[in-house]
């Protein structure tokens, strides 16, 4: 079946991350690891017992990697902190792109990024979709 010409073109990215790996990195490298990857907001939202924190941060790491798959950079990927998962008081999350990630999204005419995350025991996953204009 032909896609209607008015239908927007979408890009999708998905990634999976291990909470155990994130926990191990926190225990090995501490704040140096956390500061390199996560924003202050993300760290604040994920505060709690280490296992819970690692699971929630793993979902956010997966989200950042999913964003990279949507952006499809040809050279350097944006800094992880340029791709922030913003979580509201009800627990729902959206993406905020800044710096190089924002510039790449603009260059590729990508807008309306949307995010969904999930986790089960050790495994966390995230899916990101965006609308591509001008296609």
């Amino acid at each position: 079946m032909d896609v209607p010409r008015s239908a927007p073109r979408m890009r999708v990215g998905v990634d999976i991350a291990s909470a155990a790996d994130v926990r191990e990195s926190i225990e090995t490298f501490g704040d140096r690891y956390l500061d390199r990857i996560f924003t202050p907001h993300e760290r604040e939202v994920c505060q709690g017992p280490i296992d819970r924190m690692a699971t929630r941060l793993a979902a956010r790491f997966a989200a950042k990697e999913a964003v990279i798959k949507v952006l499809r950079p040809h050279a350097a990927a944006p800094n992880w902190r340029c791709m922030e998962v913003r979580t509201d008081s009800a627990g729902w999350s959206d993406l905020v792109l800044t710096g190089a990630a924002h510039e790449m999204a603009q260059a590729a005419e990508l807008r309306d990024f949307s995010l969904s995350m999930s986790h089960d025991h050790d495994v966390a996953t995230a899916v990101v979709v965006a609308v591509q204009e001008g296609t």
Partner: peptide
């Protein structure tokens, strides 16, 4: 994710810090 750990461990091993512009897959 493992490349992040490698980066941090390399920093420890060589007493250096990777600038943001070098944090790329290549």
């Amino acid at each position: 994710h493992a490349s992040v750990n490698v980066m941090l461990a390399i920093e420890d091993e060589f007493d250096i810090e990777f600038p943001d512009e070098m944090l790329k897959k290549s």
